[in-house]
Amino acid sequence: LVGSPDACTPLEAPESLMLKISANSTRPARWYTKLGFFPDPRPFPLPLSSLFSDGGNVGCVDVIIQRAYPIQWMEKTSSGLYIFRNEREEEKEAAKYVEAQQKRLEALFTKIQEEFEEHEENTTKPYLPSRALTRQQVRALQDGAELYEAVKNAADPAYLEGYFSEEQLRALNNHRQMLNDKKQAQIQLEIRKAMESAEQKEQGLSRDVTTVWKLRIVSYSKKEKDSVILSIWRPSSDLYSLLTEGKRYRIYHLATSKSKSKSERANIQLAATKKTQYQQLPVSDEILFQIYQPREPLHFSKFLDPDFQPSCSEVDLIGFVVSVVKKTGLAPFVYLSDECYNLLAIKFWIDLNEDIIKPHMLIAASNLQWRPESKSGLLTLFAGDFSVFSASPKEGHFQETFNKMKNTVENIDILCNEAENKLMHILHANDPKWSTPTKDCTSGPYTAQIIPGTGNKLLMSSPNCEIYYQSPLSLCMAKRKSVSTPVSAQMTSKSCKGEKEIDDQKNCKKRR
C-alpha cells in the first residue's frame, strides 16, 4: 500500500491510497474465485514468455539451466562506460593497472622525497665550524643523538667513527635508523595525503570492477522454446556448485529489463537481486529431453546438414588451427580443420588469444555463435563474449574426442599444410589463377600422377606410402554422392573411413 502513512479500513480508504502491484508478479483471478487472501502465500511460478521487460520484479520462475557461461568482469569507467571482460582480459587489464599504479607511486615518492630533503636543507641549523674532540671527549659521548651530531659536524666523519667503541657505534646506528624510520613515515604520510587528494580530483585512479555470472535458462515446460539470460552479480562460491547445467530450479525475486543483445530472440533479460533465492527440484526426463541438450563437441560434418540447428544457437568443437588471418581494421579470422579435412572459419569479435590460437595447434572452443544466415565460401562461426578457447581443455565432454584426435593424427604439420592448400583453393575459387593449378602443390619428395582405373584420382607416391587425392575432374559429381578427401598416409583417422560427406554443386566447384 502506498499513499497513506496510517492504517485504515477498506471502506474508509482515502483517494490517495493505492495498491502497488507488479505486472510480472500478478495475474487475473478467475471470475468465480472467492475474495480474500490467496490460499498459498508463496509466489507462483510464471513462464518466461509471459514476462514484460518493464513489468517490474518477478516473484517466481520454474526453469532449466541450459548453459552456464564463464565469469565476466564489468568495469565502470570514469566516463560512465561499462566494459565487460573475460578472465584473460581482466588479468591483463589488472596487471596494466597495477603497473601504472606502481609507476605513479614511484614518481610521487620521488617527488615527495625531493621536497622533503629540500625542506630539511632549508631548516637545517646554520653550519658551525668543526672543532676537534679529544679522545676523552669522544669516549664520554654515549647518547645516540650526541654521537650523530658529533659525526655530522666533524671534519672527517669516517675518521671520528674509527675511535668509537662497539657500544657507541651501536647507539649511533640505532639513532640513524630511528631518524630514517621517522623520515620514511613522514614521506608515507605525505604520499597517502597526495593519493587521497589525487583520487578526489581524478576518480579514474581506482578501478570499479564487479563480477557477473550469466546463465541461459528456459521455462520448465514442453511448450517453451525461447531462452533468457539470467545475470547474477557478485556470485558467491556456493552458487557455483549449486547451479549447474541440466538441472531444474525455482528462482524467487528476480528483476527484469529489456535485452540489449540483438542475437537473442527474447526481448527481456533477468537479474538476481539481494532477495533472490534458489530451490532445486526434481526433473522429468521426458521434459528435459525436449528442452535441454547436453554439451558435446560437434563433428564438422554435421554442419553440412541443412536441417542442423544447435541448441541455444551455440556450438562446442575441436579442431586443428590451419591459418590465422589478421588485417588492420578488420576482425581476425581463424580457420580450423578436423582430421578429415572438413574446414570452417571463426570470426573473432573479442581479443584473439595468440598464446593458444596458433597455426598447427589442436584447440577446443566453447560457446561459438551459430548464425545460419551468414553467407561466405566457408561455414563461419563467431567468437563472442562467452567464447572460450583452450589447448588443454579440462571439461569432461571434450576429453575423449580431444585425446582421440591428438593420438590419431601423427603428423599435425602435414595435415595442416594439406588443409591449407584446400583452404586456399576454396577461398580463391573465383580467381582464374587458381582455377587450373600450374605448380605442384605437394610437399617434400611426393610426386603426383593420374592412375588409370582409380576414378581420376591423383596418386601421391613417396618412399614410404601412397596417398590418393581426388582429381578436380571427379570432384563435381552428382549431388549426394560421396566425395573423398585428401588423407595422408600416416594421418588417416579410422573415424573418417566410414564417414560420408554430402556436397552440393556449389561446394564441388570450390573444392580441389
Rank of each mutant, 00 (worst) to 15 (best):
G80E: 05
R85L: 05
E90D: 07
E91Q: 13
K92E: 12
A94V: 14
E99A: 10
Q101R: 13
Q101K: 14
R104I: 10
L105Q: 08
L108V: 12
I112N: 05
F116C: 09
E121K: 13
R131C: 12
R135S: 13
R139C: 15
L141S: 06
D143V: 06
G144V: 11
G144D: 11
Y148C: 08
Y148H: 09
V151G: 05
A154V: 14
A154E: 12
A155T: 11
D156E: 14
D156V: 06
D156G: 06
D156H: 05
S165R: 10
S165G: 09
L172W: 09
R176T: 14
A185D: 11
I187F: 13
E190K: 13
K193N: 15
A194T: 09
D208H: 15
V209A: 05
V212M: 06
L215W: 05
R216C: 06
R216H: 06
E224K: 13
S231G: 10
R234H: 09
R234C: 11
S241Y: 14
E245G: 00
E245K: 02
G246E: 04
Y249D: 02
L254P: 06
T256I: 15
K258E: 09
S259A: 12
S263C: 09
Q269E: 06
A271P: 03
A272V: 14
T273I: 11
T276I: 05
Q277H: 15
Y278C: 10
Y278S: 06
P282L: 10
P282S: 15
I287V: 07
Y292C: 07
Q293L: 12
R295L: 01
R295W: 00
P297S: 14
S301G: 14
K302E: 11
F303C: 15
P306S: 08
F308V: 11
C312R: 07
C312G: 15
C312F: 14
S313F: 14
S313P: 15
E314D: 11
V315E: 00
D316G: 02
D316Y: 01
L317P: 02
G319E: 01
G319R: 01
G319V: 03
V321F: 01
V322I: 14
V324F: 00
V324A: 06
G329A: 13
A331V: 15
P332L: 03
V334I: 13
Y335C: 08
D338G: 01
D338E: 00
E339K: 10
Y341H: 15
L344P: 00
L344R: 03
I350T: 15
D355Y: 06
D355G: 12
D355N: 15
I356T: 15
A365P: 02
A365E: 02
S366G: 08
S366R: 12
N367H: 10
N367K: 02
N367I: 01
L368R: 00
L368F: 02
L368H: 00
Q369R: 15
Q369P: 15
R371Q: 13
F389S: 02
E395K: 14
G396V: 14
D413G: 13
K422E: 12
L423P: 04
L423R: 05
I426V: 13
L427P: 07
N430K: 12
W434C: 08
